[in-house]
Amino acid sequence: MSISETEARKVAQLARIAVADEALPALASELSHMLQFMAQLSEVDVTGVEPMTGVEKMRLKRREDVVTDGNMAEAVLKNAPDAREGFFAVPKVVE
């Protein structure tokens, strides 16, 4: 299994990480190398094995569907790089 530069570009886009064009060949080869390492898993017979979802068979805890906290907009926004008038501010999304 090897990853082309085009695939590497697509992975970077999906991961929302900017990668310069000149860095793509190295990235593609690095990702390919890691996938080769993971390819060992194809040797294992997993017929009839359920994918593991947790280490202990326990049902996720549930609670009443009620409001447990809130009214802390100031605390929520406190670490925002750009917060205005009680909102997170981002560049224009809709043209």
């Binding site: 294992v44 997993v46 994918p51 593991m52």
Partner: peptide
């Protein structure tokens, strides 16, 4: 597949 091997 990794999750299945994890179970094993």
């Amino acid at each position: 597949r990794a999750r299945k091997v994890r179970a094993l």
